[in-house]
Computed example of a mutant assay.
Amino acid sequence: MKKLAIAIALSLVSSLSAAKELVGVWELVSGNYVDGSGTLVDYKDLDMQALKVISDSHFSFTSMKGGDFWASGTGTYELADGKYTETLRYNSFGQATGAQFAFTTRIEDSLWYNERWEDGKRVEYEVWQRVE
């Protein structure tokens, strides 16, 4: 029982430590997504800009397409075992409260890489750079 408690505590500390790596402000550098018709769309072709702010427990992002508002969302997130999962609370793009978006994730130096997969196909790829 004592070993189990230690394993759980180490797991929590590891998850909290990994989450601390995300805390800050991130700017979208590049990426792409698969649109409703199955076409891969590069963010550069859309002149997409975005900022994502991460606290210890919440995220918020706003994105612009050229000079026009594109989308925003906010909610909570979890980070564990190379998975970053956002749970929406509010958003501008019609998703229900509680909708989740799960990404495989990694941070290398000042860059944060996210990939989202559905039915074995990558549907979104993002590269963010730490601003602060």
Rank of each mutant, 00 (worst) to 15 (best):
M1D: 15
K2V: 11
K3T: 10
L4W: 03
L4I: 01
A7F: 09
A9V: 06
L10Y: 02
S11F: 06
L12I: 04
V13H: 05
L16V: 12
S17N: 14
A18G: 07
A18W: 13
A19G: 02
V25E: 01
W26T: 01
E27F: 02
V29G: 07
V29L: 03
V29M: 05
S30A: 08
G31P: 00
G31N: 02
G31L: 00
G31T: 02
N32H: 11
Y33S: 13
V34Y: 01
D35V: 02
D35F: 02
G36T: 13
S37K: 09
S37E: 15
G38C: 03
T39D: 12
K44D: 14
K44H: 11
K44F: 10
M48E: 04
M48R: 02
Q49E: 15
Q49F: 03
Q49V: 00
A50S: 07
K52F: 04
V53D: 00
V53P: 06
I54W: 09
S55G: 00
H58K: 08
H58F: 12
H58C: 09
F61I: 00
F61G: 05
T62W: 10
S63C: 07
M64G: 03
K65G: 04
G66Q: 01
W70V: 04
A71D: 12
A71N: 04
G73W: 05
T74K: 11
T76Q: 10
T76G: 14
D81L: 08
G82N: 02
T85I: 10
E86W: 00
E86N: 06
T87R: 06
Y90F: 11
N91A: 06
F93H: 01
G94D: 08
G94R: 00
Q95Y: 08
T97G: 13
A99T: 14
Q100N: 06
F103W: 06
T104S: 15
T105S: 15
R106L: 09
R106I: 02
I107F: 14
E108R: 13
E108G: 11
E108L: 13
D109M: 06
S110E: 13
S110P: 09
S110Q: 08
S110L: 05
S110K: 05
W112G: 09
Y113W: 05
N114G: 05
E115W: 12
R116F: 08
W117Q: 09
E118I: 14
K121I: 00
K121F: 12
R122C: 07
V123Q: 07
V123E: 09
V127A: 07
W128K: 02
W128N: 07
W128Y: 13
R130N: 09
E132M: 06
E132K: 03
E132Y: 01
E132W: 02
E132L: 06
